[in-house]
Design a protein around this nucleic acid. Sequence first.
DNA 1: TTGAAAGCGCTAACAG
DNA 2: CTGTTAGCGCTTTCAA
Lengths: 348, 348
Amino acid sequence: MVATIKDVAKLANVAPSTVSRVIANNPRISEKTKERVREAMSELGYHPNFIARSLANQSTQAIGIVIPGSADKAFLNPFFPEVIRGISKGAHQKHYALHMSTGETDAEIMEGVVQMVEGKRVDGIILLYSQVDDKLTKYLLRKKFPFVIVGKPFKDVEHITHVDNDNYRAAKEVTEHLIQLGHERVAFIGGNLKLVVTVERLLGYEKAIRNAGLVYRDDYIIHAQFLKEGGQAAVQELFNLDEPPTALVVADDLMALGVLNTLDDMGINVPNDVSVVSFNNVMLSEVSRPPLTTVDINIFQLGYEASKHVIQLVEDPMDPIKRIIIPHKLMKRQSCREYVSTKKTTTI
Amino acid sequence: MVATIKDVAKLANVAPSTVSRVIANNPRISEKTKERVREAMSELGYHPNFIARSLANQSTQAIGIVIPGSADKAFLNPFFPEVIRGISKGAHQKHYALHMSTGETDAEIMEGVVQMVEGKRVDGIILLYSQVDDKLTKYLLRKKFPFVIVGKPFKDVEHITHVDNDNYRAAKEVTEHLIQLGHERVAFIGGNLKLVVTVERLLGYEKAIRNAGLVYRDDYIIHAQFLKEGGQAAVQELFNLDEPPTALVVADDLMALGVLNTLDDMGINVPNDVSVVSFNNVMLSEVSRPPLTTVDINIFQLGYEASKHVIQLVEDPMDPIKRIIIPHKLMKRQSCREYVSTKKTTTI
DNA sequence: TTGAAAGCGCTAACAG
DNA sequence: CTGTTAGCGCTTTCAA
């Protein structure tokens, strides 16, 4: 049997409550007894039972992480490990552990979260995505459970602490960059339209297109999954068009990788025949052929800030709602090139 | 206030224990009362408190994941997200959640694990690495706590359930592959020598070298970190040698990436001037320039089996110790080429 | 400064 | 088939 607080109390000749106070390092206990109790603890190899403490305490020192879709699929995208790295760092500093439940469908995920919240398994939650019209968000809001979103909430922006990039501006900037390079036929390949980040990036793209007086064409907008395969399908559609684009804004590095592959298979050269920019700057983007011009969104920082702020929220429920915008930066590499009109006719 | 089991009991006119039984779907409760209780539950929006249950139960339905070094650093290597994907899948199937504590130093990690175990926060543990002379392993063994190792235990192989590849053979095979291509000066770039996997791969390499009657040279063996930067330093050492190698066995894809970069910087062409093979087959290796010839070790499967088996161990402490070997497979891509002796003199 | 005792919410004998 | 009751191990009033 493992030693409990009672055993320690007995050995040290004090009451259990005193032992408890020693653990909490309560200043109202004399140094002498503290010492005695500590000795007893180490003599018995005592370690507090966290679960019991949590029950008495209503606090777990753990924060829950919610990943979209199945952890399974999502982890394929290096974005997630990287945010978690950041979260992990922030949590560690405050002595919080991480808890993940997993689920394949939306319903399963919801169930997992309900268990975390209702089952009191975590003190706070970080949502690693933001979906349009999200039940989870509503639930958490209704329960008044401490949580933060990595991304921009679809609704109730003023009531939800969130950590995000200015994706609208970032998208606008990269599109402008392409336009400045002389491209006039710029297409957009985005992820799931239910994700707010997709919407924001699309909007930024649109704004840039319109500002430049270019035509905003529906057939230049494609949506797929945030995965490699996503990019492949998209490319095939775009390059079957009468007037295929000369530049591509891709909403995610992993998709861009798929794009690059497919383009290569089709004998279309990047950047000579078509320019590509994407988002995230995961390690892959630096290594690909050609290295991708992409927006560094500082994923690690996104996670770090998120964990910092849930914990603040947990520890002080009066902590004000915040909106934290992490800066982004365009990383120019070799997937873009200025548009030379003569090229086009010779290439395709 | 949230509804507790007592509230439900009161409303349904039964004893709390009956409610508890309904939750557990105990067959000895009549359908009628079950129905009544369930109604009461949903009327009150009741959800069981997991923590309380854990305390009464001595079981948490959670398994702990231990990552080497700081989660922080490790997550930089795509190996880890990928094992976790596998673990996550297995855990989900059995309705287990995942729990991660993080720590920067070995001591901190140890502390985290002690908290998990002693604090009864998890039912079982998966160690995502195997270190020579590992305190953690000893501790877990002494505590008789259910755990499995991903990798080969340094000691007590017969007493620890583990999921591993046959790294010795894999390394031997790739080295032989290089030798068959005509290479006679094959170097080895490995990770931390305290990691059993490094040792195994080194041993396999050595065996192949000796079998082929080649000289085993100490200056052809370099150890660095399992990170990109690791590869860079190694290359510089090797190519300052009088007789630099014509082929490289690199113990990890990420390191190999660093190797590729550095080689490129030095104007050494892969595969024309030097061939490179590595291990893991993470997504990066397919994308790099040139695409890496690498050993697919089936990382996902490693994780999946690990979680399956800790859970078995948790649920049946009498479950026998197992050694699960996941098959590997050489993925031939473009980083290798046969050695043509004339080349050498012209190239360097 | 310390102790006694009442919970935290649930489970599991034991009894009936 | 169901109720009573005693914990699980800790924290936290309330008293002293």
